[in-house]
């Protein structure tokens, strides 16, 4: 009996199309009966789950690349991504998570050895505005945030976000009281500032003044422990990256920056101290220290040397010890400038 009504298995393309139709239905159907609407929503959720299991495989089978490619091609042939993103708040938690994983996976799928998701996003770059604004919505933040982090894997998309006005908002998102959301925003922020080296270097050079002013005052001098700790770690990652050497040289020539880092060195938190040291060492190692940097270091020489004398990492760390020895040597050997 059952076999009679069994429809032939749907192809990945069928599932994408049906998903699209269902989303369109969900988006406009304020007027239909509640029960019918619920049926449709349930069907939509089920379709999204099927998309997920094609892309990720399931307990019985590994994903098939041909099926994935078909699915991806159909998905981006029309506006399915936009529909899915805007429809997300209407879905239940499980479907939201499935959708997020589908969107994440699609960013890496190649069709004819091309990442077509990148082309699609370039043409629909305003979708990024929706995703970023998600940080202001407690219910959507983690889903949109996860999608966002996947989208900025594409260099052109990351460049758009870096150069947009959204960049300033991250300084506030990172400090939201809700830890999950703040931490998610911090992860995205880090990704933006470390993933695509040349784009980051260009961004930092062009936006040096406002960016580091915000970075110092809002993040490094934040009253929030987590913010300070993450910010000083990220600062180290950024400045120590070879591609950012110009920015680094500029950063370590500023007296104000040195003051902030020296304050972080004095924190009671060991983790912050250690991370701050990795930035501070750049000030000391700079072979062209401006006079005001030298005079600060000289003025604080004995305090610094005393601090470093019993400054240790929990685990033995040769590199750290070597760096420390270098910094101590550098500071100890500084000649006070001639008095005016």
């Amino acid at each position: 009996m059952k076999g009679l009504f069994k429809s032939k298995p749907r192809t990945p393309v069928d599932i994408v199309r049906q998903t699209r139709d269902l989303i369109i239905y969900a988006n406009r159907s304020a007027d239909v009966r509640e029960s019918k609407r619920e049926d449709k929503m349930a069907e939509l959720c089920k379709n999204i789950r099927e998309l997920k299991s094609i892309l990720y495989g399931n307990s019985e089978s590994e994903p098939v690349s041909e099926a994935c490619a078909q699915l991806t091609a159909e998905f981006f042939r029309e506006n399915t991504l936009r529909l899915l993103i805007t429809c997300l708040p209407k879905l239940n938690l499980e479907a939201r998570k499935d959708a997020t994983q589908v969107v994440a996976n699609l960013q890496r799928q190649q069709v004819h050895s091309k990442l077509i998701a990148s082309d699609y996003l370039e043409a629909n770059i305003d979708l990024l505005d929706i995703l970023i604004a998600g940080y202001e919505n407690t219910d959507m933040a983690l889903h949109y945030g996860a999608m966002l982090r996947e989208c900025i894997r594409h260099q052109s998309v990351a460049r758009y976000v870096l150069e947009s006005q959204h960049m300033k908002k991250f300084f506030d998102y990172i400090q939201l009281p809700n830890f999950d959301i703040a931490a998610d925003a911090a992860a995205t922020f880090k990704e933006l500032l470390t993933r695509h080296k040349s784009t980051v270097a260009e961004f930092l050079s062009k936006n040096y003044n406002w960016f580091f002013a915000e970075y110092n005052s809002k993040l490094l001098e934040s009253s929030n422990y987590i913010t300070r700790r993450q910010a000083v770690k990220l600062l180290g990652d950024i400045l120590l990256d070879r591609s950012n050497s110009v920015v680094m040289t500029r950063y370590v020539s500023s007296r104000e920056n040195l003051r902030i880092l020296m304050n972080l060195l004095r924190e009671s938190s060991k983790s912050i101290q250690i991370e701050a040291f990795h930035v501070f060492k750049l000030f000391a190692a700079n072979q062209n220290k401006p006079p005001d940097i030298v005079s600060i270091l000289v003025a604080n020489r004995s305090k610094l040397l005393r601090l470093f004398a019993d400054f240790k990492t929990d685990k033995e760390d040769e590199q750290f010890e070597a760096d420390k020895a270098q910094v101590v040597k550098e500071i100890a050997g500084l000649e006070p400038r001639d008095r005016p």
Binding site: A42, T138, P177
Partner: peptide
């Protein structure tokens, strides 16, 4: 048309349950 399969987690409810927001200060 209607796939009424057993044990389907997401079809059990199409509705969205709003999470109660607990205060975020000690």
């Amino acid at each position: 048309m209607a796939h009424h399969e057993q044990e389907d987690q997401c079809s059990s409810t199409g509705t969205i349950t709003q999470k109660i927001q607990y205060p975020l200060d000690p």
